[in-house]
């Protein structure tokens, strides 16, 4: 197989694998920029994927599935918000709790409702997101270089993938070009100043948490409605944590998130494709090393060996109005 063909295939699976990461990392971006740390991305995605799988199967409608996913994810976000914003509990502890509750309840409920070992029944074409073929994709396939790039890489993804990539500039625009975004970022840096300006810190943070829920819901729906045909037990498999790692790796900036997620998606795609392949000079790279690489990179980055990742200043601290 020639080099170019391999490149196209790797790039395409990179795009597929990084879609949920981009959505989840952007979700994290919204809450963390508002000063609410969220290690519950994993749980929210999993809960959303489950809701999407169940509802899409029962209603045979992919949009209902997506809606259910977003609803469940937003509800979980509100639990996190209630614990960490209203009750001023530890944000980390609350995130951990949500991950566990979801991990357990998706299996219990899935088994009770469908009795298929914790999975939801396989979805038919109606219950899933199909692939969008861009116009002329078949016609230009034969054009050298650009043809395969267009029809192999750009075309033929699920609508949620296109949505995820569109959400990157959209998030940038919301965060950096709207009044809401400015306030949201301010509340993560200096909530006292925002409060002084007469804007409710609590309500702003709640809105940020809801944004996070919506995006996490879409990420979860992508897993069970687009990448797979239904929900399987523990299907997020640490993607929420990888997204969290990507968010930090990207230093909490939308554009960097795109590249960080593509990088981590590529590592995944590469590891799957070259499992047990002996490279010249290096030899055989253990699969386990490739799997651990995103985490290792994040640790190195966090330690400030590749630039410095500075989190939002007020992150992790509940806001207390001083009287």
């Amino acid at each position: 197989m020639d080099f170019f063909q391999v490149f196209i295939e790797l790039a395409q699976s990179t795009v597929r694998l990084s879609t949920p990461l981009i959505l989840a990392a952007l979700a994290g971006l919204f809450t963390e920029r508002a000063g609410v740390f969220d290690i519950g991305l994993e749980g929210k995605m999993l809960g959303a994927a489950f809701a999407a799988g169940c509802v899409a199967y029962i209603s045979q409608s992919v949009m209902m599935g997506l809606f259910a996913a977003v609803l469940v994810s937003v509800l979980l976000s509100l639990v996190h918000g209630y614990a960490s914003i209203t009750q001023r509990g530890s944000q980390i502890v609350s995130g951990v709790a949500i991950n566990f509750v979801v991990a357990g309840s998706t299996v219990i409920l899935g088994e009770a409702w469908f009795r298929q070992g914790g999975r939801t029944p396989a979805l038919t074409e109606d219950g899933r997101f199909g692939r969008i073929t861009l116009p002329f994709a078949d016609a230009v396939r034969e054009v050298p270089i650009l043809g395969p790039l267009y029809s192999g890489l750009l075309s033929g993804h699920s609508p949620l993938t296109y949505l995820a990539f569109l959400m990157v500039p959209a998030s940038w625009w919301i965060l950096y070009r709207t009044r809401f975004g400015l306030r949201l970022r301010a509340v993560g840096e200096n909530p006292g100043a925002v409060d002084t300006a007469g804007i409710s810190v609590i309500w702003l943070r709640y809105r940020a948490v809801i944004c996070c829920g919506i995006l996490c819901g879409i990420a979860g729906a992508y897993l069970s409605l687009a990448a797979n045909a239904g929900f399987t037990k523990g299907m997020t498999a640490g993607k929420g944590y990888i997204a969290l790692a990507a968010l930090i790796f990207a230093k909490w900036r939308p554009k960097n998130i795109l590249f960080a997620c593509l990088l981590f998606g590529f590592l995944d795609a590469f590891a799957i494709r070259y499992q047990g392949y002996a490279f010249p000079l290096i030899g055989r790279v253990p699969v386990q090393f490739m799997q651990a690489l995103p985490y290792i990179l994040t640790v190195i980055l966090l330690a400030g060996f590749i630039g410095k990742a500075i989190p939002p200043k007020a992150g992790g601290v509940p806001y207390v109005k001083e009287r």
Binding site: A83, Q87, G89, S90, I98, A103, G104, S105, V107, I108
Partner: peptide
């Protein structure tokens, strides 16, 4: 119908109510 994953739920709820809330 109640597998051992029930414990994971209880564990999560304990963390939620004894910790965050």
């Amino acid at each position: 119908s109640i597998s051992r994953d029930m414990i994971v739920i209880i564990q999560g709820l304990v963390i939620l109510f004894a910790g965050a809330l």
